[in-house]
Amino acid sequence: MAWLPWSSGSSDEGGVKKTAGGAFESPSRTNRKMCYAARDSFFECLDKNNILDSINTKSGREKAETFCSQFDKEFEKNCAHSWVEYFKKQRVVNYQKEQTIKRLESQGGEITAPQLPLPGQK
């Protein structure tokens, strides 16, 4: 599929085997591990260059392309495209969540996400 440049070569460029649509052929433990490693090095690069959002904004995408394009390519190569998008968005969401929690805690409020009660807390 021409509109997904990363999906053209399945395994010829190295990385994990993928379908034509850019999904994993088999999301096995080894493949997941490789994907997580590629993600972590890409995020490390973003951290170094002080980039939070590498997907939602144009400026973020450009910055990521300028500073971390090498890692981004590895990331795409080793993960399903949907995973790449998911992790990039998750990075932003996680950061915002952390900030919100920190802000609320600094204001003296306590925050607990709604969860099922643990044994002994019923």
Binding site: A20, S82, W83
Partner: peptide, 14 residues
Amino acid sequence: VAPGQDYLVDHSIY
């Protein structure tokens, strides 16, 4: 879905 299509599924996790 077309074969080989790449997508994620949202689902409950209990």
